[in-house]
């Protein structure tokens, strides 16, 4: 009796300690990580099932703007090519749009400014937990895609950036076409009524208002339409995704 009692209590304690302490070791086990990552697919499917494709993120008024909007990640790229562009006020900068499209082309800032623009005051939700409200202006990504005409095979829009981390890995991001053509998905060249500041991704950054901040690539240089993400950099669809963050950042 006493033995059974001791066994049970020891068993429960072992299970408890196993769960609490062992999880650290499990975090390094590729099979466990793959199992945990299934939750991302469940969240993505459930959220798409529950909410409409075109559900719009809340928009705010000028009175709601954050007085200080934090800048995260790279705040001033050291890349010499980027520095040269910045010194000339991005007059020589151009966004290349290509890959699986009918008509690849480049857009200068002036080209982008000639496209119909959308202005939106939205809340930026960082994966760290903070939120800030800012005003963004620029053409809808769908407008730009309409100009280059994606081929039927294209499934993803991939964004390549000017900045790299200390180890030399270039920043990039990707969206599926559903999120790419959402009305609030814009290429912003203005923030809070002025030119996009360098800490926030000058001259052009992505805004994806229904996902977390790390999806909104800054310092855009090139956009490519692709049918797969596996051959790009770490193969998981983005710089942060290659570090273990979810590709679907709707939660």
């Amino acid at each position: 009796m006493i033995d059974r009692r001791r066994l049970l209590i020891q068993g429960l304690a072992a299970v408890g300690l196993g769960v609490l302490a062992g999880c650290d070791a499990l975090s390094g086990d590729a099979r466990v990580v793959r199992l945990l990552e299934r939750a991302e697919q469940a969240s993505r499917r459930a959220q798409r099932f529950l909410s409409s494709r075109t559900a719009m993120a809340k928009e705010f008024t000028a009175a709601d703007l954050s007085s200080i909007f934090p800048a995260n990640g790279t705040v001033n790229p050291v890349n010499p090519a980027y520095k040269a562009l910045a010194e000339r006020g991005f007059a020589d900068w151009a966004l290349k749009v290509g890959g699986l499209v009918e008509r690849p082309r480049s857009f200068s800032l002036a080209d982008l400014r000639r496209l119909p623009a959308r202005t939106q005051i939205t809340r930026h939700d960082c994966v760290e937990g903070w939120s800030a409200i800012g005003q963004w202006m620029g053409p809808q990504l769908s407008t730009v895609l309409g100009v280059v005409r994606p081929l039927p095979r294209a499934r993803y829009v991939v964004f390549f950036c000017a900045d790299a981390d200390e180890a030399g890995a270039t920043y990039y991001e990707s969206l599926d076409l559903e999120e790419a053509v959402h009305p609030q998905t814009i290429l912003a060249y203005e923030m809070n009524g002025g030119p996009l500041p360098i800490p926030h991704g000058a001259p052009l950054r992505l805004r994806v208002e229904r996902q977390l901040g790390y999806k909104m690539a800054k310092y855009l240089m090139r956009i490519e339409l692709r049918d797969s993400l596996t051959l790009i950099e770490g193969g998981r669809g983005g710089y942060w995704e290659d570090q273990g963050y979810e590709w679907y950042a709707g939660i």
């Binding site: 959220q47 529950l50 719009m56 939700d125 208002e209 229904r210 996902q211």
Partner: peptide, 26 residues
């Protein structure tokens, strides 16, 4: 927890509005 999700908050703004915003929900 769901009220902090940007996608859920877009589809169902009341999730966080009831609390006065996303940071309140957090």
């Amino acid at each position: 927890g769901l009220a902090m999700s940007p996608r859920m908050d877009a589809a169902f703004p009341w999730l966080s509005d009831v609390w006065g915003g996303r940071q309140s929900a957090r």
